[in-house]
């Protein structure tokens, strides 16, 4: 089985309202040393059989909007 982890992040420079809110909340809790928080999304994908390039295709077909997002893939074969 092939397992893949896809992390979808906002591209550098893209405003991240969710990250800002998390940072605000953390500072409210007394964590004043936090310079920046960026929020992303993580997908864990399991394939029935090892097929190459399926996970990048999945990212392009649905998981990522390339206008504001970028992604990283970690594939693990078992």
């Amino acid at each position: 089985m092939v397992r893949g982890t896809v992390c979808v992040y906002l591209k550098e420079g893209m405003y991240d309202p969710e990250g800002e809110k998390v940072k605000e909340a953390l500072s409210l809790l007394g964590f004043n040393n936090i310079a920046k928080v960026r929020v992303g999304k993580l997908y864990q994908i399991e394939l029935n059989e090892a097929t190459s390039n399926v996970i990048p295709a999945v990212c392009e077909a649905l998981l990522v909007n390339p206008v504001i997002e970028r992604y990283e893939i970690r594939e693990i074969e078992e």
Binding site: Y15, P17, E18, E20, K21, E60, N65, P66, V67, I68
Partner: peptide, 13 residues
């Protein structure tokens, strides 16, 4: 064909 823009999270969150 594919998105050239996005309607994403409001700035106000």
């Amino acid at each position: 064909p594919g998105p050239t823009a996005i309607l994403t999270r409001n700035s106000s969150a």
